[in-house]
Amino acid sequence: MIKKNFCFFVSTLDSGGLENYLLRFLEYKASDFNKIVIFCKAGRGGQLEKRYSSISNLIIYKKKIGFFNPKDYISLYTFFKKSKIDTICDFTGNFAGLILFTANLATIKKRVVFYRGSTNHFNESKLRLLYNKFVKNLTYRYATNILSNSNAAFDFFFSHDWRNDTRFKVIYNGINPQQFIEEKENLRNEFNIPKDGFVVGHTGRYNMAKNHQTILKVAKELCTKYNDIYFLLCGNEVKDKLKAKVKKEKLEDRIILQNNREDIPKVLNTTNCYYFPSITEGQPNSLIEAMVSGIPIIASNIEPILETTPKAIHHRFKNPMDVEGFVAEIEKIYLNRDNISSYCCTEWARKHFDHKVLFEKFYNEL
């Protein structure tokens, strides 16, 4: 089998669900590629750049591409031709449109788009929605393969019956459970959390979709009511954005904030309950990691999360803004911590998100 040259388009290489997913996929399948180019179209790398660079046949290319700058796309066309790219894959949903159009002009036969969110991630205005419609039409016309990690994404972005279009495929995120199974250490000593303290965890970068404001409201109620409950929140900019609010509530010792960390298995080992009240998602890697680790989960009842979890626990999920509902559900786990098996779905998650199966499915689309 002839190995080909692939180009993957991302915005940056900052740590996030997409960036970690692609890194894991490439670490697993790198030997099946001739050359891999990671094209950072925001013009910069990020926190995961060093790990990406450690893959021997991988090149990182950082070049800012504007939303509608003809010079950028002429330059991109030249890049495609010089690099002899066989397949491109853009992970930015509708905003892949002009990339796919340019790739078509450059006679690249395989043009893949991968939707990683289930709603628009921009402040909507007439002009922005008009541009979004324009690039979406280009995406639909010039993509040879249209992928998503949830049915919810296709239901949102494509109102026609996409299920009858063979270009559309849902490929769920794959997780290798070994690093979570093998890690035995936790971070209680580092964060001065008592051995018998009850820790509610959340992992995810700071943005409106992750709903940190509701997490803080829930944390305040529970930490005020019980003196042995702690919250551990980590992700890009989490500490920077939330430390002033936590300090104002005088809960610095009970609500522990961390920016991006590379030892997520240890973070998860520190927790007794995982709380994930997202307002919108694609398919959350963080939640899958928690399930694989065997932690009881409480989450919002949005469609992408319902699609990612077993139906048997859906009755425990709440509207993303339901502070009292979340307080009650976390309190149930806290008061019955010795009988939490019904909240866990370890084996289900390991079976449904087997990285070997799902990475092969993705590779076969390229």
Rank of each mutant, 00 (worst) to 15 (best):
residue 1 M to G: 13
residue 2 I to S: 14
residue 4 K to S: 10
residue 5 N to Q: 04
residue 6 F to Y: 15
residue 7 C to M: 11
residue 8 F to L: 15
residue 12 T to N: 13
residue 16 G to L: 06
residue 20 N to P: 02
residue 22 L to D: 07
residue 26 L to N: 03
residue 27 E to I: 12
residue 29 K to H: 07
residue 38 I to L: 15
residue 38 I to W: 05
residue 39 F to Q: 08
residue 40 C to F: 06
residue 43 G to C: 13
residue 43 G to Y: 10
residue 50 K to V: 14
residue 61 Y to I: 08
residue 62 K to E: 11
residue 63 K to R: 13
residue 65 I to H: 02
residue 66 G to L: 15
residue 66 G to V: 15
residue 66 G to H: 14
residue 71 K to W: 13
residue 74 I to Q: 00
residue 77 Y to A: 08
residue 80 F to H: 03
residue 85 I to H: 05
residue 87 T to K: 06
residue 92 T to A: 11
residue 97 G to E: 02
residue 99 I to H: 10
residue 101 F to P: 00
residue 110 K to Y: 09
residue 114 F to L: 04
residue 115 Y to D: 05
residue 116 R to I: 06
residue 119 T to A: 13
residue 120 N to K: 15
residue 127 L to V: 14
residue 128 R to L: 13
residue 128 R to W: 11
residue 135 V to P: 02
residue 138 L to P: 00
residue 140 Y to P: 05
residue 140 Y to I: 12
residue 142 Y to Q: 07
residue 145 N to K: 07
residue 145 N to S: 06
residue 150 S to A: 13
residue 152 A to Y: 14
residue 153 A to T: 11
residue 154 F to M: 10
residue 160 H to W: 08
residue 160 H to N: 14
residue 160 H to T: 11
residue 162 W to P: 06
residue 163 R to M: 08
residue 163 R to I: 11
residue 164 N to D: 01
residue 164 N to C: 03
residue 166 T to C: 01
residue 169 K to N: 08
residue 169 K to Y: 02
residue 177 P to N: 01
residue 184 K to E: 12
residue 188 R to A: 12
residue 190 E to C: 08
residue 193 I to V: 10
residue 194 P to W: 00
residue 197 G to T: 05
residue 198 F to S: 03
residue 207 N to R: 04
residue 215 I to Q: 14
residue 219 A to T: 06
residue 224 T to R: 07
residue 228 D to I: 05
residue 229 I to D: 07
residue 232 L to Q: 07
residue 232 L to M: 07
residue 233 L to R: 13
residue 236 N to M: 05
residue 244 A to C: 04
residue 245 K to I: 02
residue 245 K to L: 06
residue 247 K to A: 14
residue 249 E to A: 15
residue 250 K to I: 09
residue 250 K to R: 11
residue 252 E to C: 05
residue 253 D to V: 07
residue 258 Q to T: 08
residue 263 D to F: 11
residue 270 T to H: 03
residue 273 C to Q: 01
residue 276 F to C: 02
residue 282 G to D: 04
residue 287 L to Q: 12
residue 288 I to D: 07
residue 297 I to H: 12
residue 298 I to T: 01
residue 300 S to T: 02
residue 306 L to S: 12
residue 308 T to V: 08
residue 313 I to E: 02
residue 314 H to D: 05
residue 315 H to L: 09
residue 317 F to M: 01
residue 324 E to S: 10
residue 326 F to N: 15
residue 327 V to S: 11
residue 327 V to P: 14
residue 334 Y to K: 13
residue 335 L to G: 01
residue 337 R to F: 05
residue 341 S to E: 08
residue 350 R to C: 10
residue 351 K to P: 08
residue 351 K to Q: 12
residue 351 K to C: 08
residue 356 K to D: 14
residue 357 V to T: 15
residue 360 E to P: 10
residue 362 F to Q: 13
residue 364 N to V: 06
